[in-house]
Computed example of a mutant assay.
Amino acid sequence: MSRPLVADIDLDALRHNYCHARAQAPGSHALAVIKADAYGHGSVACARALEALPAAERPPAFAVASLEEAETLREGGIRSPILLLEGIFEAAELEAVEALSLWMAVHSEWQLEALLAYRPARPIPVWLKVDSGMHRLGFPVEAVPQVWARLAAAPDQATGLHLMSHFATADAADPGECRRQLVRMQALAEALSAPLCLANSPATLAWPEAHGAWVRPGVMLYGSDPLEVPNSASRALQPVMTLRSRIIAMREISPGEAVGYGRRWVAARPSRIATVACGYGDGYDRHAVDGTPTLVAGQRVPLAGKVSMDMLTVDVTDVAEADIGSEVVLWGRAADGTVLFIDEVARHCDTISYTLLTGVLPRVPRRYHGGFD
């Protein structure tokens, strides 16, 4: 019998979330971001599921972080356009960009010079990355007109020019800095008559004025609410990954007895403690505090004690039916339909859903539901 821990991936929920993103920005194209192995969900399976949507609903393009991620998709049979969000990492990669028919971001002077010196058989679609305030990647706003002109003057190397930037605070309740970035980018796009891609997941859900020619939903595709203050649109997202396991041992302890490494959790009453097959060796966050919620038999029960490499322990004193073999949901949807949202678990770990989703390790099997053949 195999270890009971599994990551169930609901491809119907993925498609729902993508269609929901499109509905928030009906006048925009929606670029489906599936970098980091589709945020831990399996990039090829997720891309296939989205490509299986009706033609009018499927993504016009996918986005990844690197050439290696794009190669994985092409090897998996994905034929849709793929945008390299960080462009190339060395000039020699341009041959593969051309061979795989990829789109690429250009965010640095050296990338620009490499592209203009290259002689492709067909021009490469280019998305010009602008630093509108994040100060991470991109050309300064004031330098963009000249860079744009150089690209426009090189039709043998570059085609399909777009402007792209990234919000630093679109998820925050205070709109100040986000609005400043938006104003800068809209003015630049208007001056250049350029199609604009600005809205990430939070902006797709909460900033309709930022939608532009393209939006690029990322973490929202996987059912995580990216907003600091949820709204009706973000509440409609459905969890795609359910990390589920089972109870493998039970014990009863007396008041004053401790559980786990460092004796962090101490029983305040006669307690029933369940040991679950899941730990930080699987990607569950070791920083989870006592009281971090899980679902046992569809009921919320708290983590009790530090997470170990292969196991964690929960207090099931108030769940009479809990026993060896009972289902435990670490995040996602229980068999009875009860949902434990990953964002709540992340808050108890002092982190964000992105780190939990991308941190689920390869030894946890992915099991896909909602066929796409």
Rank of each mutant, 00 (worst) to 15 (best):
R333T: 15
A267Y: 03
A170M: 05
V144R: 06
W265I: 07
W103M: 15
R333A: 11
L112V: 03
L330C: 12
C349R: 06
V296M: 14
P362E: 10
S43A: 15
A92R: 13
M250H: 05
V130E: 01
V229C: 03
A45W: 10
D131H: 00
Y222F: 15
L116Q: 00
H20R: 03
E142M: 12
L330R: 08
D10G: 08
A249W: 03
L243Q: 05
H348Y: 14
M311A: 14
A114N: 02
P123Q: 11
A258I: 03
M309F: 14
L83S: 06
S43K: 00
V130L: 01
L115D: 01
V130S: 03
P81N: 09
V147S: 09
A173L: 10
S353T: 12
H369L: 05
V219I: 15
A189G: 02
N231S: 08
V319F: 13
L161C: 07
A210Y: 02
L85Y: 09
G42Y: 06
V289F: 03
M309L: 15
E257R: 13
G212I: 03
V266A: 05
Q238L: 15
A96M: 05
S101L: 08
L182R: 03
P239I: 09
D171I: 04
W207T: 12
E113V: 04
S245D: 14
A30I: 01
A56I: 02
H41M: 14
S132E: 00
G218S: 09
P302K: 06
P54T: 02
C278H: 12
M220T: 10
P226L: 13
D373C: 10
A38W: 08
A277E: 13
L361G: 10
G325P: 01
E71A: 10
H16F: 02
F62W: 03
T317S: 15
P125N: 14
A153H: 08
M104F: 04
M309N: 13
Y284I: 15
A189F: 01
V219Y: 06
R3T: 14
H135R: 10
E109P: 07
D37M: 06
A172L: 12
A173N: 03
A154I: 09
V339G: 12
V141F: 12
